[in-house]
């Protein structure tokens, strides 16, 4: 098959330009820092938003419940790219000007909140109703019951989904370049389109994401296992 082509490929004797890579490591470190910061801020904010939304749904708070439902569907069924454009290019037309950083955080939170809400909801619904009754029967207030009895169990059940969302959200930061955030993706893109060496740049990009996300994945596995061995989340037979 096309010997000329493959031949040409090898004959040119292509090699990785390591000095180019070495020279641009600082750029990628900067990008990685931006990616990780926005990723973690996004994860934290969406976890809080998601938890609140899931509580509203599970405890059937009137009115808010319908709003939360609408929000979850909107956030899950629109791409982050569209959400970011809306914040960055749309809102200024109606007089709301957000900085690039604010757009990034709001966008990630809007997207992640919906996913986190669903993850928390699955955890909350997996906690038997009788657990809530047992908590209230020892005189805890409904709020105390949620805090000490329901949430820890819900969290353990939801942990795998929550960690999956966390990794998903950190990867979604690669969209932030459209609002001019200098994250990893944007650093790589700027180097490449500015005449840099494509393969070297893209390889560094891949390595950078793996270096950031692999520890998160390993941490997730470790945390899940710990919870399981402690008796968390495991269906105990009655």
């Amino acid at each position: 098959m096309a010997p000329a082509l493959t031949g040409a490929f090898f004959v040119r004797g292509w090699t990785m330009d390591w000095s180019y890579i070495a020279a641009h490591v600082p750029d990628f470190l900067g990008g990685a820092w931006v990616t990780l910061s926005y990723g973690l801020i996004g994860v934290a904010c969406s976890a809080v938003l998601g938890l609140l939304c899931s509580l509203v749904r599970v405890f059937r708070v009137p009115v808010l419940r319908a709003l939360v439902r609408a929000y979850v569907e909107l956030s899950r069924n629109t791409p982050l790219l569209v959400q970011l454009f809306f914040l960055y290019a749309g809102l200024p037309r109606v007089g709301v000007k957000l900085s690039a950083g604010a757009c990034a955080v709001v966008g990630l939170t809007f997207l992640g909140g919906g996913y986190m809400a669903e993850a928390f909801r699955s955890g909350l619904e997996a906690v038997d109703r009788s657990q809530r009754e047992a908590g209230e029967c020892i005189g805890l207030t409904p709020l105390q019951t949620v805090r000490y009895v329901v949430l820890p169990q819900a969290f353990a059940t939801a942990a795998p989904a929550l960690f999956a969302n966390m990794i998903f959200l950190i990867k979604e930061t690669s969209m932030l370049s459209v609002v001019a955030i200098m994250d990893l993706m944007n650093v790589a893109d700027t180097l490449r389109t500015g005449g840099g060496r494509t393969i070297e740049v893209l390889s560094m990009l891949v390595v950078a994401y793996v270096v950031i996300l692999l520890p998160v994945s390993l941490l997730a596995t470790f945390a899940e296992r710990r919870m399981r061995f402690a008796g968390f989340g495991r269906q105990h037979t009655v």
Partner: peptide, 29 residues
């Protein structure tokens, strides 16, 4: 909850809190 602090109840299905050790189950209330 103030009434329930005076009226204890135990169920057929025990309903201990599975994420807590026995002592923590006892201390919570």
């Amino acid at each position: 909850h103030l009434v329930r602090q005076k009226i204890g109840m135990v169920f057929q299905s025990y309903d201990l809190f599975p994420h807590m050790r026995v002592m923590d189950n006892l201390l919570l209330g």
